[in-house]
Design a binder for these strands. Sequence first.
DNA 1: TTGAAAGCGATACCAG
DNA 2: CTGGTATCGCTTTCAA
Lengths: 337, 337
Amino acid sequence: MKDKRVTINEIAAHAGVSRSTVSLILRGSGRISEPTRQRVQAAISELGYTYNRSAANLRTQSSQAIGLIINDLTNPFFTELTAAIEQTAERRGYFVYLVQSGEDPDHQHKLSLSMVEHGVAGLIICPATGSHPETFERLRTLGIPVCIAVRPWPDDRFDFAGPDNFRAAHMAVDALIEHGHRRIAFLGGERGNPSRDDRLAGYFGALQKHDIGFDETLVIESRPSRTSGIKDVAKVLALADPPSAALCYNDFVAISVMHGLRQHGLQPGQDFALIGFDGMPEAETSFPPLSTVFLDARRVGANAAHMLIGRIDEPDRPVSRSVIVPDLVLRQSHKAS
Amino acid sequence: MKDKRVTINEIAAHAGVSRSTVSLILRGSGRISEPTRQRVQAAISELGYTYNRSAANLRTQSSQAIGLIINDLTNPFFTELTAAIEQTAERRGYFVYLVQSGEDPDHQHKLSLSMVEHGVAGLIICPATGSHPETFERLRTLGIPVCIAVRPWPDDRFDFAGPDNFRAAHMAVDALIEHGHRRIAFLGGERGNPSRDDRLAGYFGALQKHDIGFDETLVIESRPSRTSGIKDVAKVLALADPPSAALCYNDFVAISVMHGLRQHGLQPGQDFALIGFDGMPEAETSFPPLSTVFLDARRVGANAAHMLIGRIDEPDRPVSRSVIVPDLVLRQSHKAS
DNA sequence: TTGAAAGCGATACCAG
DNA sequence: CTGGTATCGCTTTCAA
């Protein structure tokens, strides 16, 4: 079983033709006589030949692999993104090399270089918080196609696919205000995360528009997790003048805020209004169903994959950005007086 | 920017040495004089050289890529599995090619062959329900290392890493019976899925052990999803003698069963006992917290990756199986009279 | 319609 | 210690 793979040479010999002929047949050239075709095909299945695509790639200087660097596959948003990228990549004839940066810029740097060594045709990157400019600089001088996904990166020479966080947050806060809330908290997320910065800006924007003063004690910073919201909400609830509503950095924190609320004897969606961010599937089946900003990770992913492959096919096309305006999905949790 | 990558030849020329020397240096051979080393290293950074690993692989007949075929990345169990595989693979110097079979045997067949063409060193497969024997047969004759993960496959010539579904289900039903339940349903999952078959067998086993007669109307079949449990539970609730508890095929159906229960005016964990399967993260933050069989996808994934890489290193080692005995995690949902 | 030969970027064996 | 040379498996003119 450890006999080395059968190669094009062996099938050529077996069929009594040259390996050029075999190659031609493999690539579906029409200018080969039917008889020889048959003979070669017979040899192929008889010997159990498998095409060696990397050898071909070496020769043609091409590759059907794209690299995907994401922060954390465990987050449903990124999972959906990854699933969509994988699907559209496959549909267009590419495989995806998947790696997780773990939100570590150094690691991300090494990974991106490693992927290049492995000969990916292009790269989709969701920049880790605190990414090094050199990472992208290097990729640029290498001339390898890169698409930045989800989180904006301040270099407009790269393609970008992601959501409009500013508008999304603005919409959500607008909705809360329309429901009569004036004290609205912003819970979760870490400073330096560009997505959060944009959301926070949208939050401020909406507040301003409605002439609501800004109270920094209502903005709680924390590394978002499945439990972080419990502490976040406790902090604002302890305030002299606590909020009656909150926009959360993402659905993780929103759902844990629900738990925190219950610990304080408050019913989410009744005594306190809550809106999340991301629109991950479990937001729909949470209790009560979570109102949230639906970011459509699948669409972002599909866009990113198409943009990257487009650029691989046509390296000199103009830079493009695909910014998706999210939908506000109002379910139950935002209802409260 | 589209200038082709700089190669080992160019840096050899630039440094005034042969490319053999450069290669030696690249691979860290000690038998190269320090001066030449320096010169070559200088050339490398000056010219911006990147190692072409695929070329090297062609020569050495090796590869640092492993293929991973899973059914559906959107399922948190498989997400955790994937994340763990990716992590341990990377730690051991491998990249993972990720593809989703979508539970389609034909697709899975094509994908596995495609991965071989792309030169993976080995393959981790979670067999799709209804997988074709030829898929694995082919892989075997090709002599490529394969590790079956999660779902058993009836061919003991392959390594396997997965949970002990039989025992797990047995434990869960035991617990339900200890809480006084005699009418226990088994909800969700499709016939032909080996994981489900094992779980069902464990369910029967526990029933038998406690001399509880088997009632086939309590076993509901359905494609598991985030909503399927709603219908599943409605069916058994409509029975003349409805159950007071249920073991669910997985956490998805368990959580949707909670919703179904509420629609019937029943409080999960109070009027009806529920145990899920998988132990996905959101089971912990569901309301009420879901009691479930924790399968530890991360451990399964790490095991699978280690086993595969072990076999890549040592193709003739004896076949091994790593079967993990799951933990029953009792939270709230199983409590009911 | 088919074959010969060169070459993709690296490794490896063998001299020197 | 370093260089020459033959591959690895496949593609691609260019002739025949």
